[in-house]
């Protein structure tokens, strides 16, 4: 036998690591990802980062424009709204509602949806096809409309908006995970593992799951952007987060009547929402491109 212990490379790049390599080569994707990471940090440390309490009113400082304009005030970097609340503090604190809740929603929806989808994907026959057709019907309704229906039943409020958005996102996960499990289940490598005598849990978790992870991550990013927009839209309509809370959609709705007097109080939360959704979408899109590049090479 040859002596082959000349060079022993312990770790080789897995396909997932290769995917990361493709992804990180994309500048726009990395910028968007760092913005998201920054947003996450700001959200986590918002009580310490916000200069004032979100609902603290400064009676002497009503409708002050951002600090870089002539009448601006350095104490209020992004200005104040019509009842003298600091906008920077409100936007930072509002991240909890506009980024934090969507993250929790997507996490719960993903766990529930992936579990149901995985089991649905490996069953055959009437039960599986009934689920599939039911989901097709659900998916044909826009998510916001469906959330409105749920809110109409449960009544407006933050908890109900969260519940509604979660329920609305679950079918998407079930559908895509079910389809990928269904496709993977009869591929040769799964059959080979089944012939190896692997139990079903092992097939699902260790054999199929790593192969559909990119798809799931992509689904999570698209669900996240939907959740952010839905929570903001429900807040804007006054059906979700209620008024004094600094949720961005609610802030937009509240500043609507002052739009000529103090446009910044509308533009700033709008910009924040725009940048956040843009970043999420850019990350999702770059991920899709990276997956395509990897499969092509």
């Amino acid at each position: 036998m040859l002596n082959t212990n000349l060079y022993y490379q312990e770790r080789n790049p897995s396909p997932t690591q290769q995917l990361w390599r493709h992804f990180s080569a994309n500048l726009a994707a990395m910028i968007a990802l760092s913005f998201l990471a920054l947003g996450l940090l700001v959200m986590l440390f918002s009580p310490w980062l916000a200069p004032y309490d979100a609902n603290q009113q400064f009676a002497q400082a009503l409708s002050i424009p951002p600090s870089w304009t002539e009448p601006g005030d350095m104490r209020f970097i992004l200005g104040t709204d019509d009842i003298g609340r600091d906008l920077l503090s409100r936007i930072i604190t509002g991240m909890r509602y506009s980024l934090g809740y969507p993250l929790v929603i997507v996490l719960v929806a993903a766990i529930v949806g992936i579990t149901i989808g995985a089991f649905a994907g490996i069953t055959r026959g009437l039960r599986a096809s009934a689920l599939n057709h039911l989901l097709d019907v659900l998916l044909s309704i826009p998510s916001l409309l469906l959330a409105l229906v749920v809110i109409a039943i449960l009544g407006p409020g933050l908890e109900n908006a969260v519940i509604a958005t979660t329920l609305v996102l679950i079918p998407q996960f079930v559908h895509s995970v079910r389809n990928s499990f269904h496709d993977e289940w009869n591929k040769d490598y799964v059959i080979a593992s089944r012939l190896n005598g692997c139990p079903t849990w092992y097939l699902m978790l260790r054999v199929i799951m790593p192969n559909i992870t990119p798809m799931i991550v992509m689904q999570i990013t698209s669900a996240l952007s939907i959740a952010i927009l839905d929570i903001a839209a429900l807040g804007f309509l006054g059906l979700g987060v209620q008024a004094p809370a600094p949720e961005w959609g609610t802030m937009l709705a509240r500043s609507l009547d002052q739009v000529y007097l103090s446009p910044w109080s509308m533009i700033l939360p709008g910009m924040a929402l725009f940048v956040l959704v843009l970043c999420v979408n850019v990350v999702g899109d770059s991920l899709r491109t990276a997956i395509k590049e990897r499969t092509e090479n």
Binding site: P15, S193, V207
Partner: peptide, 14 residues
């Protein structure tokens, strides 16, 4: 069993 397509019969992620 040995499959026809050895590439497809191996799990790419493991």
């Amino acid at each position: 069993m040995v499959f026809q397509d050895s590439d497809a019969s191996l799990n790419r992620q493991l």
